[in-house]
Design a protein around this nucleic acid. Structure first.
Length: 573
DNA sequence: GCCGTTTTCGGCCCGACTGTTTTCAGTCG
């Protein structure tokens, strides 16, 4: 069994939780958390690094001790130190850290006083009114604990970025109508454009007499007010999404925006740089002694630590600080660089609109080209077409192309990759395509090696221009199929095959870390919407966000090219 | 437990809100 980065990260995270409950040195706890984060954000397989005898201490936040522990997990699948802790503490004690309001100190107090070792134990103790008997706990805390358990049981999931957008837009509109409000924006992971967000961090600049916090807690969609201060408040919307509001004066806007955009790790790194320069950075500005020296804009904050502006999508402490210092930050691809969509469905199979409607909608969006990529026979649930139907379909696309002006319809298909890695269309049809977008739609359960080799075999076919949604995941619904993505990326590079960032907000095909790895390996990336209706062409921006999180520049993205340059770039051999 | 352009030891980011122990610890972001 191959140990994946996220397996090691999960063990480290759990170890950190247990250490915390044990009242260990908080910096030691953080070291494990940092290491977990490093591993999760790493494109390369740590198992392979171990097999290749690479020096793991080169990784940020991993020293001699943690390198040995990573090796231990990779080689044995276990972490001995964690097993030891697990033996001395109740199995489910660490689960308690998931409850808001319960930190390590309180969990320890509960365990020592009442032998509470799980959420169920905790609920029982609260109902029997035993929690209020512990020093430092009262009736109100007991109630809050019960409430937190309830909430934890029916939510506790992350929200898709698109759903967060739908919640944020009307809320911002509501806040902007408050007295004295100048600006209202969403910061946090939403602004960093992570694929899912845990909560919404709303930042408002306002004059001192503003009623914005009052308006915030009185917002229609608020289900519960968690906290309510003068400059800060937290609510939970009816749908379960938590929203944190912070209010600062305009002179602090840049510092606050930087602070609340995060990530936490990025902020800590920036503040450390400030410290070295005798400065203090907080959400109100950059200070030398008690005098504010910057903070009205984010750029001014970065300038005090001698860095250029860093785009929010890069702020994950994954090397962006060093890159900024050395003036080698990527010039990130933008939505307006995109000149066409290379993955769209029509009503020839499971799309809602005709190829002509899709093409006209693409033209409206300013594109030069659009690839109509309908399904092949093996994807029967989508009414996939066999060779005969496909031949007629391509005739129709040619006819359409002759008729339309201002947009080039590229003849294409979403060719199913069969279980053995062959393609679901004969060569005589594949030869007629401008490009073939190939993808897996079945046999998600193949073991890792077989799945990997299946897809590489498909890439061996000279017709395969792009591998679409190469991980097969559906956020919150279906985990990625087990595939050696690192090997897949290398294979794509060797064969001149492109990989797709699928812009469907629930797919986003490649993770940001894998996008970045593909870039480092020189693999061409296409960003496509997989639209099944004209409105979904607008999902392109989610794909561009993901590309930006993977450090892609315009030159890394093939569908920023003109039609002819694109077709040249996709031609293989 | 990590890390080093003052350091291989001694640091490790900073402030708001809540409840309770009435002066502050705990938690969170």
């Amino acid at each position: 069994m191959t140990v994946r980065n996220r397996d090691v990260a999960a063990l480290f995270s759990r170890y950190a939780e247990l250490l915390e409950v044990q009242d260990a040195n908080p910096f030691r706890v953080r070291a494990y958390r940092n290491a977990a984060q490093t591993l999760e954000g790493l494109g390369a397989d740590v198992s392979r690094m171990v097999a290749d005898g690479r020096d793991l201490t080169e990784l940020p936040g991993i020293g001699k001790d943690l390198a040995a522990k990573v090796r231990e997990v990779v080689e044995t699948g276990r972490l001995g130190a964690l097993d030891d802790l697990d033996r001395s503490l109740p199995e489910h004690l660490a689960d308690l850290t998931a409850l808001p309001g319960l930190g390590p100190k309180r969990i320890r107090a509960l365990y020592q006083a009442l032998k509470v070792g799980s959420i169920d134990d905790l609920e029982r103790a609260a109902r029997e009114r035993r929690i209020r008997t512990i020093e430092g706990f009262g009736a109100k805390t007991e109630q809050k604990i019960l409430h937190a358990i309830e909430q934890h049981r029916d939510t506790g999931r992350r929200t898709l970025l698109i759903d967060a957008e739908h919640a944020a837009a009307p809320l911002l509109d509501h806040l902007k109508h408050s007295t004295g409000v100048e600006r209202a924006v969403v910061a946090g992971s939403y602004r960093r454009r992570r694929e899912t967000v845990g909560d919404l961090d709303v930042l408002v600049t306002a004059r001192t007499n503003s009623d914005v916090v009052e308006r915030f807690v009185a917002y229609d969609d608020v289900g519960e007010v968690v906290s309510h201060g003068t400059t800060r408040s937290t609510v939970i919307l009816r749908g379960g999404l938590q929203v944190d509001l912070r209010v600062v004066p305009a002179t602090s806007y840049g510092a606050a925006l930087h602070y609340f955009t995060g990530s936490k790790a990025h902020n800590i790194a920036v503040r450390r740089l400030a410290q070295e320069r005798g400065l203090k950075v907080n959400e109100y500005g950059v200070f030398r002694d008690d005098r504010q020296v910057a903070g009205r804009t984010e750029k001014s904050v970065y300038a005090t630590v001698d860095l250029p502006y860093i785009e929010p999508e890069l702020r994950e402490d994954r090397g962006e600080i060093d890159a900024a210092r050395e003036h080698r930050l990527p010039k990130l691809v933008r939505l307006r660089d995109i000149r066409g969509d290379l993955h769209c469905h029509s009503n020839a199979t499971d799309g809602r609109h005709s190829a002509e409607e899709m093409a006209l909608a693409a033209r409206e969006r300013g594109y030069d080209y659009v690839a109509i990529t309908d399904h092949t026979k093996n994807v029967s649930v989508a009414d996939g077409m066999d060779a005969e139907r496909f031949a007629a379909h391509l005739d129709a696309l040619e006819e359409l192309n002759d008729r339309l002006e201002g947009i080039r319809v590229l003849k294409s298909a979403e060719v199913d990759i069969l279980g053995d890695g062959t393609l679901d269309l004969p060569d005589r049809i594949l030869d007629r395509l401008d490009l073939a977008v190939c993808a897996v739609h079945s046999r998600f359960d193949l073991p890792r090696r077989k799945q990997t080799e299946r897809i590489i075999r498909a890439m061996d076919n000279r017709h395969c221009s792009v591998v679409a949604h190469p991980s097969g995941r559906l956020l919150g619904r279906r985990p990625p199929y087990d595939v050696d993505m690192e090997r897949l990326i290398r294979a794509a590079g060797e064969r001149g095959c492109a990989l797709e960032v699928n812009a469907q907000p629930r797919r986003l095909g490649l993770t940001d870390a894998h996008v970045r790895q593909a870039r480092d390996e020189g693999v061409g990336i296409v960003v496509s919407t997989d639209a099944h209706a004209v409105a979904q062409l607008d999902y392109m921006r989610f794909g561009v966000d993901q590309a930006r999180r993977g450090w892609l520049e315009k030159a890394n993205v093939l569908n920023t090219l003109s039609t002819n340059a694109l077709l040249r770039a996709l031609r293989r051999g």
